[in-house]
Computed example of a mutant assay.
Amino acid sequence: MRNDFVKTSNVQRFFNALTALNERGAQEACLVVVDGLPGLGKTTTLRNWVGKTGSIYLRAKKEWTPSWFMNELLEALRVHPPHAFQKKYRKALEELAGRQASAGIESKAFGLVIDEADHVSSKSAILETIRDISDMIELPVILVGMGKVNDNLTRFPQVASRVSQKVRFEKCSEDDVRALIDGRCEVPVADDLLKFIRKVSGGYNREILEAIANIERHGLLNPPGEGGLTMADMAGVTIINDRSSNRPITVPEVLA
């Protein structure tokens, strides 16, 4: 399977939000919330953006404290954390501001991504530390969660007011499934099999990629015709495991 990054409609909405963030009126409104159910490609999208921009990626922990958060931030910046929290904070600001300035010279985006942000979106101390960092140097901070971040932030108006953009990742449409297949699969796939993939995957990227791996494995051993691999070609072959039961789903026989 090819490792190409595919720009689905979710990815495009994320990029549109970043464009809107750069055009914001209030300069302190630097927070972006990316929400959606697990398996819709949020982490993949953000890791791709981080890799291309040199931004900083952190995965929040359930038991994070401001000091623990600051330690992980400095480690991600490849800076040895000082002992005192004040020194950690100043050093993080200095490093982030420097990298942001360097990115600006090259006309590149730069920001801080905090994945699994549901863990910290109800913790005032962590949120205030994040807000302070963002406010001090007008640094874009992207909070990535699984559906609770926006609701939790309503309890903290001083933080919620800094959210400039909200992006919700949705289940893949048929066009998105086609884009993923064309971008990742080394075997052509016919429309009937594509529609079946969309149905049994529920539109989740994770299951669609699992289906692509199984299709490719079968198709490379049994090359399809000109129109691509069909349901008839895949009849009786496992295409994915059911998300709720973990039982295999096979492609049914196609009635003539």
Rank of each mutant, 00 (worst) to 15 (best):
V6H: 07
V6K: 04
K7E: 10
K7H: 05
T8M: 03
T8H: 06
T8Y: 06
T8D: 03
S9Q: 12
S9V: 05
S9H: 12
N10S: 00
V11L: 02
V11K: 07
V11M: 09
V11N: 04
Q12E: 14
Q12K: 15
Q12L: 15
Q12N: 09
R13M: 07
F14Q: 03
F14R: 05
F15Q: 12
F15W: 12
N16L: 13
A17D: 06
A17Q: 09
T19E: 06
T19S: 03
A20C: 07
A20F: 11
A20P: 00
N22F: 12
N22S: 15
N22I: 09
E23F: 15
E23A: 13
E23Y: 12
R24I: 03
R24E: 00
R24T: 03
G25H: 13
G25S: 08
A26L: 07
Q27L: 12
E28W: 10
E28Y: 13
A29H: 15
A29R: 15
A29G: 01
C30A: 14
L31M: 14
L31I: 14
L31R: 13
V32G: 04
V32P: 01
V33D: 00
V33H: 00
V33T: 11
V34W: 04
V34F: 06
D35G: 06
D35S: 13
D35C: 02
D35V: 07
G36L: 06
G36S: 05
G36P: 04
P38E: 08
P38I: 14
L40V: 14
L40Q: 05
L40S: 03
G41I: 03
G41P: 05
K42T: 05
T43A: 12
T43S: 15
T44K: 11
T45I: 00
T45K: 05
R47S: 05
R47C: 02
R47T: 11
N48L: 00
W49L: 11
W49Y: 15
V50R: 09
V50H: 02
V50I: 11
V50S: 04
G51V: 02
G51K: 14
G51E: 09
K52I: 01
T53W: 08
T53V: 04
T53Y: 07
S55W: 11
I56Q: 01
I56T: 10
I56F: 10
I56V: 15
